[in-house]
Design a binder for these strands. Structure first.
Lengths: 153, 153
DNA sequence: ATTGAACCTATAGTGGCTTTAGGTCCTATG
DNA sequence: CATAGGACCTAAAGCCACTATAGGTTCAAT
């Protein structure tokens, strides 16, 4: 290991270089995405570039919308370059499918909202199309599976 | 009030008719979206149709993706039919804008994921396009505003 | 009288952080 | 060398909108 020789830096610098917050770094350490940092004499965390690369990987994966658990698996794979990448592929494909499903529901929601907003004439509440649609039993969204899982994401 | 004369029913029936869970009803009561229910001799909640209508309104608004706070405002307006509906309109328009913004980011994310997945040849991890994209500093998403708010929704 | 479903309250857990409170350490200046 | 103030430390609570769990009470049918 030549890590002993590389320059080290504090958590603030690390966070800034990775484009995230200091508390987030500590959080990732706590949940085990980042290894327990070495400390200086005053108990402050010291990092080298290897950790910056790992944190950058994490942030990229999170930017792509992968869950922390998926990131954990992807990191595990990145740590073993000689293994086959089927599983990374499967994780990415599944995530893509989820994103596509969300896109579809969100698109339908946009259409409904557009219709709703377009029909509001701007008068009194009791003539308001928005309040009316929300009140009406039979004006259900086809996107909303009643009794299934809720919340469009 | 003819509420004294209308038949009443329990929380299970209410939840079932509104298509939500019993705990959710109690939660809405606790946060003040639903009024404190009247109780029978054995301390169990008794409801009439007015509450069912209110709960249905809430569930519809939530299905449309309005936040609980937005629902609270919309309910307040629905309670005053003689007031102008500008504010309901504004809330709906703003929500529509947010949905459109999310759609855009999610669409860009789908494109990136599709590219990523398409380029994975299925070999070893160190040749894997997925791991590579996540590792690479310069392969940033244009959708991800580093330093801004995170998480694509 | 008994059974079992439906109800009750209070509390904790979800995800992925962010915020707060109350302290300690480091570094630059006087 | 003292001091100021910024960066760092931990632990715990807060966010959203519920959902789940534990441990008890009430209701309706037999």
């Amino acid at each position: 290991m030549q890590q002993q020789n590389t320059p080290t830096f504090g958590i603030g610098t690390l966070a800034q270089r990775a484009g995230c917050q200091v508390q987030t770094v500590r959080y990732y350490e706590k949940i085990g995405l980042l290894p327990d940092a070495t400390r200086n004499a005053g108990n402050q965390r010291r990092y080298h570039d290897a950790t910056l690369r790992r944190l950058t990987f994490i942030r990229h994966a999170r930017d792509f919308g992968f869950s922390v658990e998926a990131v954990r698996e992807l990191l595990g794979m990145a740590d073993h370059p000689d293994m086959p990448c089927d599983h990374a592929d499967a994780i990415a494909r599944r995530h893509l499918e989820e994103v596509e499903a969300r896109l579809e529901r969100l698109g339908a929601l946009r259409d409904e909202l557009q219709r709703m907003v377009a029909q509001c004439a701007g008068g009194r509440v009791d003539e308001c199309r928005i309040v009316e649609v929300l009140s009406d039993h039979d004006q259900c969204l086809h996107t909303a599976a009643h009794g299934g899982q809720r919340a469009i994401r």
